[in-house]
Every structure is written in C-alpha cells, then in structure tokens.
Design a protein around this nucleic acid. Structure first.
Lengths: 114, 114
DNA sequence: TTTAATACCTAAGAATTCTAGGTATATCCA
DNA sequence: TGGATATACCTAGAATTCTTAGGTATTAAA
C-alpha cells in the first residue's frame, strides 16, 4: 500500500505482483508475500492484508491459483501456486501492465530514471 | 483508459498525468488533454471523459488548478492552469509516482525495458 | 441533412484498496 | 509468569477511482 505513508497501491497492480512473484517460485503463502515485497523494496512498499487476502481469493476463484494448506510450527499456512491457466495469464497480465507503464512514461516524459 | 481495449487506467495515475502535462504548458482544456494523451501514446491510451472531468474538478476543488473559460469558434473551452500550490504538488506527486514505479519494478523484476 | 468532430457535463455501478477490526499460536524478553 | 511482538489467517465497511452510458450544444464535412 505505501511508498509514502498512506499512499495507495495503484489499482490493479497488486494482482499482477502476486502472479509475477509466483511465476518465479513453486508456491508462496500470504504472509510470505507481504514479507517478500517488503524485502524487495527495502521496506518502502507494504502490502496490507486487507488488500492481499481478497486479491488472493479472487485469483483463486478465477482459476489462476490453487491452494494447499499445511500446518507449520503449529500455525496453518495456506500455500498458493499458479495453475496452468494462471501461468498463461501471468505472462499476459505482466505484458499488459508493462505496455501501460510504457505509455504512462510517454505521457509523463520521465525517461531518465525509468 | 485503455492500452488493451477496456483495460483500466491505474488508479491514481490520471491526476498525476494531468498535473504533469500542465507542468510543461501554460494551460490546457479538457478535450485537448484527451487528444494530447492519444497523440503521445500513438492512440494506445485513451482518457475517458467520465474519468477526466471529475478528476479536473477535484484538482480544482483542491486548489491545484484554476480555470478560465473562453469561447473559440462558437464553442466554450475551459482552460486549466496550475496554481502556485499546484506547481509544488505536481513535483511532489510525480516524485511519489516515480518512487512507486521504481518499487513496482523491483517486485516485478522487469528492469530491461523499464 | 446527417454524421463526425469538437467541447462540456453527470449519475450509477463496478472494482480495488484502506482502515480497522477479529482470531489464534509461538517466541522473545523482562 | 506475563506481555509484547511476530507469525498467520480472515472479513466488513468506507473511500476512491474508473467505466459505462447517458446528456447537451456547436461546427465542419460528406
């Protein structure tokens, strides 16, 4: 959710991040995703659970993710993995987002840094 | 609104685009903004009027834009310009968006193209 | 004369995120 | 022993933004 405190995640970017993170891994569980994003961005980006869990459930309902629950150290973890459809969709949605970001850069005229 | 037909504008990006476009110009009117975005993105990005006008009105209500109406060729145009506050905010919001996009790239791991 | 382009607007709904809770276990520290 | 923090899941309601789908009006082109 935040880069600056309280700034909002750009609409639609969360589900793409989830799909992309899972593209490079066998499986991840929700809490792990929040920690991975924090780690990758040096603490600058935080995924709220109020956004993450509904997003995961929606992707599962769409058939892009499957789950398996496992108890580790007395706590239940729900692991998510990409389905075959999910793998295809991940590629497509990343491409769509990339195209959008390219156009955004054309409008914003910010080539130097990105 | 679209890169692919019907895909959505990322939440929050529109107001930054407006502020950024006005940073480089004296003034612009609504319809001109829609055309400029289309031109800059070779027709790939279209701003819907249903999104644009409420966004302009909100920025004006926040004190970042001022307007002056003028009739040209028998049609009324409403020109928007940055206020002093708007100039400051434009810089800040572009920086915030840039920081967000940098972090998004870290998560998506897409450095090559952007 | 009808269509497309120019130029403004709004209302209702959809979608996503944030805020703010809730539950529960394990670990660390005082 | 007790409390705080970390781990791990969840949901409901509000806020925000965008899409869809209209509306009005003038000018230019077919």
């Amino acid at each position: 959710m935040s880069t600056a405190p309280n700034s909002q995640l750009l609409k639609g970017s969360l589900s793409v991040m989830i799909l992309r993170l899972l593209e490079g891994r066998e499986r991840m569980y929700g809490y792990e995703i929040t920690q991975k994003v924090k780690e990758l961005t040096a603490g600058e980006m935080t995924i709220t659970e109020g956004a993450l869990y509904p997003a995961l459930h929606k992707l599962e309902a769409e058939g892009l993710l499957t789950t398996e629950t496992q108890v580790v150290d007395g706590r239940a973890r729900k692991y998510y993995s990409l389905t075959k459809t999910g793998q295809t969709e991940a590629v497509g949605r990343v491409a769509e987002l990339t195209a959008f970001l390219d156009n955004l850069n054309l409008v914003l005229n910010l080539k130097p840094s990105l």
